[in-house]
Deep mutational scan, measured.
Amino acid sequence: SDFTIRIGDRTLHLKNVSEEILKILEELLRRGIDFEELRKIVEELIK
């Protein structure tokens, strides 16, 4: 499924993301992860 994360004025667009990855990202966001850290993790996950 497609997913968009907005943190402040920044946006991260994800396409064809599995439910498992979404759950991980949601947990990281709940813990207050930094946007740049989140972006790096996402890039690793979707390689």
Rank of each mutant, 00 (worst) to 15 (best):
I24K: 13
L25Q: 00
L12W: 06
I5Q: 00
R10S: 11
R31W: 05
I21S: 12
V42A: 14
E43D: 14
F3G: 03
E19R: 09
I5H: 00
L22Q: 14
E26H: 10
K23Q: 13
R31M: 10
E36W: 06
N16H: 06
L12K: 00
D9A: 04
I46Y: 11
E27V: 09
E26C: 11
I41R: 09
R10D: 13
D9N: 10
E19C: 11
H13C: 10
I46E: 14
L45C: 03
K15G: 06
E26D: 09
L14D: 00
L14N: 00
D2P: 00
R39D: 08
E37R: 05
L25D: 00
S18W: 01
I24P: 08
D2R: 00
V17I: 10
L29P: 02
R39Q: 15
R6N: 15
R10Q: 15
K23D: 12
D34R: 07
E19T: 14
T11C: 07
R10V: 13
L29F: 04
R39V: 15
L12V: 06
S18H: 04
I21G: 10
I7K: 00
T4V: 15
R30T: 13
E43N: 10
E44I: 09
R6C: 15
L38E: 01
I33S: 09
I46S: 12
R31Y: 06
G32H: 08
H13V: 14
I33R: 06
L28N: 08
V42L: 09
R30Q: 14
T4L: 12
R30I: 11
V42F: 04
F35K: 04
K40Y: 10
S1L: 15
R39K: 15
L14P: 00
K23W: 11
L38A: 02
K15N: 08
L14M: 04
R31P: 05
L45T: 07
R10C: 14
D9C: 04
D34V: 07
H13Y: 11
G8L: 01
E43V: 07
E37W: 02
E19P: 15
L22A: 13
F35Y: 12
K40N: 11
D9W: 03
E37Y: 03
